[in-house]
Amino acid sequence: MGTVSITGVSKVYGGAQGVRALEHVDVSLAEGEFMALLGPSGCGKSTLLNILAGFEAQTDGVITFDGKSVRKPGPDRGVVFQEAALMPWLTVWQNVIFGPQVQGVAKADYEPRAREIIRVVGLEGFMEALPVQLSGGMRQRVGIARALVMQPKALLMDEPFGALDAQTRLSMQQLLLDVWQTFKTTVLFVTHDIDEAIILADRVCVMAARPGRIIRDIPITLPRPRSINDLLTSEFLGFKGQIMAEMRGAH
């Protein structure tokens, strides 16, 4: 479960003469695979994520999730947004249980799970806080918990750590590595940070802009479980050198 197949997907904004955000993208994700979409801003990586999430419609092509055509958003694809996008009037706890609540899941079913996930992402003691009282990193923990509590088949993460400071970003990357090790969900992770893409993903798809397309698909064979200390290994640096060369070549 959680397989993604994207075939010949194009996206044009603003009519026939408009911006070609994506042009004929073919890519697929296997169950439990962690894929990073890496590219400069404006290369269409977020557009691709939004189409898979069901927020936007493609102009052309076919996109399926577990064999079914994607038409609208749903709890099988948990999205983690760039700025967390929490409801500011709800507490951490209320934000986390929003999904199961609106789906009409029984309290006895989701409450233990929500508590467990809150513990895993390190939010114990903040259940009654409002988002505005939290730091950026803490908010993003809520964003991840809110997605995980729905037991999604895939996580779609749109530059979730892009707005965080370097130190917080490292600890969030470690957190995500641990969380993924536990839940093993399919992940599509959009980023413009080469280090982040390599340390997290099984595969890095490098994108280029104008028109947005995937130019390289690089398997990352660093052993699992990983930690952010792997950023210092020569293997890591080997992948980084390779990807940097690819990205230079694309310009």
């Binding site: 999430a53 996008a85 609106v102």
Partner: peptide
């Protein structure tokens, strides 16, 4: 905020919800 609405839809909320 558009992403609040997207987040709610992603979590399975109906348009009325």
């Amino acid at each position: 905020e558009r992403n609040w609405i997207r987040a709610a839809l992603m979590m399975g909320a109906s348009p009325f919800t």
